[in-house]
Design a protein around this nucleic acid. Structure first.
Lengths: 137, 137
DNA sequence: TTTTATCCTATCGATTTAATAGGGTATACA
DNA sequence: TGTATACCCTATTAAATCGATAGGATAAAA
């Protein structure tokens, strides 16, 4: 299940990507347009800023804006920052690997092998989708 | 994230599929071999029985056994019973659809469109993998 | 009738999630 | 220089979910 954090984060990024001229947009504006709790959104945008996706300006005329071109923002990056692992089990995760307590031999584990296939397919989608793809539809 | 319930359920099914002759296997045997909490496994096997995957026999020589051939058990069915929706968001789920409160227009929602792609790919894996595939590796 | 093994419901502790509260800090502008 | 604006940051909380456990009921075999 995708967390609301990730869902709202992607929606906010898309909203910013659809702006003309990449001018700063207030949290409140995004919150109202996308029906997202303002304070919750605030913390999400903060995370995205700290991870280099967004820039911010304070005071009148301030807000958030994209730091990179939408074409250069891959969904893999966004997912890993907001959602964490892309894999469904830690033992097949590329970036968040963890061994299972049970499972003495990963190569013979049916769950492991099945989830590798799922991970590869999901990864393929995220790797080949940029924020620009999402914004242009 | 895959729940332990699903993980253990798939492991148990695989264990049963690997048995010779499809004789009943005690919960305790599966529990010991796969390092799964006995009582937790008990409830999982019960679910699988109530959903037509397993049969059971009580008393000495009893246990659980597959009701269908492993080749005829698709991962889509198993996942939907144990894990629930395959989709990452309810608004793209085929079997557990729910509209989002926010989102006035699904067709324009970036999350919606992205998650349809993920769902289709994941579905493809589960549709084309049977319990027999998992058991034979 | 005793042993074996599944059946079933209820509960519990820990963790995570989504959201909120409340004040701090920097910027713009009059 | 003062005031309004808007982001910054930490802490807390209510609810839900998850993994596991407890404890007895029921059915079959020996």
């Amino acid at each position: 299940m995708l967390s609301k954090k990730t869902k709202y984060g992607i929606k906010a990024l898309t909203f910013l990507a659809r702006q003309e001229g990449n001018l700063p947009v207030r949290i409140a504006t995004i919150s109202e347009n996308e029906n997202i709790s303002l304070k919750f959104l605030e913390s999400i945008l903060l995370t995205l800023r700290k991870n280099g996706f967004l820039g911010s300006k304070k005071g009148q005329g301030g807000g958030y804006y994209l730091l990179k071109k939408a074409e250069d923002i891959k969904m893999t990056e966004v997912m890993r920052i907001l959602e964490g692992p892309i894999a469904m089990v830690p033992c097949v995760s590329l970036n968040f690997y963890e061994k299972c307590d049970d499972c003495p031999d990963e190569s013979k584990c049916s769950v492991h092998n099945l989830m590798i296939k799922v991970r590869d397919n999901t990864l393929n989608v995220f790797r080949n989708t940029t924020l620009a793809d999402l914004a242009n539809q």
